[in-house]
Design a protein around this nucleic acid. Structure first.
Lengths: 204, 204
DNA sequence: GCAAATGTTGACCAAGCGGTCAGGATCACG
DNA sequence: CGTGATCCTGACCGCTTGGTCAACATTTGC
């Protein structure tokens, strides 16, 4: 289903190099804006060599999306039914924010894809993603029924967490432009803000 | 500074037609993904005719961004120093959410631009946008100093409002995929959710 | 009603695109 | 060390792209 599994040493190294270069380029230019020449240059390989490892530009892109999906959903998966509800959700928010800081390219890749109508990805949205959200929404609803969490629509709560945290990766230029900052020091303020926002709103 | 002001009747009609078609196409495909042929077809005009009214693809795009910027910032501009702080901000949230529902194309246009690093727009971000945010952040800080609003970093508060509200336009496919809905009925739930979220977090 | 200004277009162009291919280089392994 | 499998590339192809241009159509204003 995914790309042919690499077997040789060289295959492993080169597919990894290509996928990293592709992430760099696709996340910055989007699928349409990216070119094979850019990816090849970034990877330090020739264009025909890319196409020796991947059948097409689209194949590189789809492989990227597929491989990264699990990583991307891991923080939500980790939401623990045994934990203290407010702490669990605030913890999720902070983990997701940390992902934005550490993996902004991945965040932008997905943002670009979804923004364009998810032409290569809608099946997984309607499938795996929806199933996972359904599961966690049920957990949140259960916590609310026990009176351990304020009554807020669980699915929209999840949307708001995605939105607020990914904003720092996806709209990085805007955030920096408005704040006038340069490093990623503003992530400390974002942590404090989001922690307070959700703690304030979620307390039962 | 902007495109030459239309004077004749035909010029007014055609530039408007072109800009609307361009909004449709650019917001769906991004700048790189859009083609002049698509815009021409959408506008019902020939490609050379587009280029009679605009110097280049980029000129159409920049004109669009410039013309729409004011509309886009209007809700934040309307934040009233005389109003009741919590109501003012919740009102802003709901106005912004309404913009997402009524003008999703505009939202996606800006999202695409910023996501790609705002290559045609960074000057305005560092200039007008930053100035407006500074002004409103000061207002919010003043309200907080008077104890009429919970102490939350004003700039990050504004970011969170942009993020949560624009999410419904920009990531529309994902929202629909997860909710399994079709119309825009989910905006009622979003209103209720965001109203509660911010009311809960902003109460002093 | 007629000229000048304005509007419109088919045909065309150079550049860049994703992708192919024949053939040569390099590797793994008996 | 040899040979078959794997890896790599320059040259090339058909197609689409943004943009041009000369010629033609339509409006406008006197």
């Amino acid at each position: 289903m995914t790309a042919k599994r690499p077997t040789t040493r060289i295959q492993r190294k080169n597919t990894a190099t290509i996928l990293d270069a592709a992430l760099e380029v696709f996340s910055a230019q989007g699928f349409a804006g990216a070119t094979l020449d850019q990816i090849a240059r970034q990877a330090g390989l020739s264009k025909p060599n890319l196409l020796y490892y991947f059948a097409s530009k689209e194949a590189i892109y789809v492989t990227l999306l597929t491989d990264l999906m699990e990583t991307w959903l891991a923080p939500l998966r980790a939401l623990d039914p045994e934990g203290e509800p407010v702490d669990e959700i605030v913890g999720y928010v902070l983990r997701k924010l940390d992902m934005s800081r550490r993996f902004p390219r991945e965040s932008r890749l997905f943002a670009n894809e979804v923004l364009s109508g998810a032409p290569h990805f809608s099946a997984r949205i309607d499938g795996e993603l929806r199933a996972l959200v359904d599961e966690k929404a049920a957990l949140i609803a259960a916590w609310q029924a026990e009176g351990r969490l304020a009554a807020l629509d669980p699915r929209h709560l999840i949307f708001s967490i995605w939105a607020t945290t990914q904003h720092y990766a996806d709209f990085d230029v805007q955030v920096r432009g408005v704040l006038g900052t340069e490093g990623d020091g503003h992530y400390r303020a974002a942590e404090a803000f989001l922690g307070r926002l959700y703690r304030g709103a979620l307390a039962p």
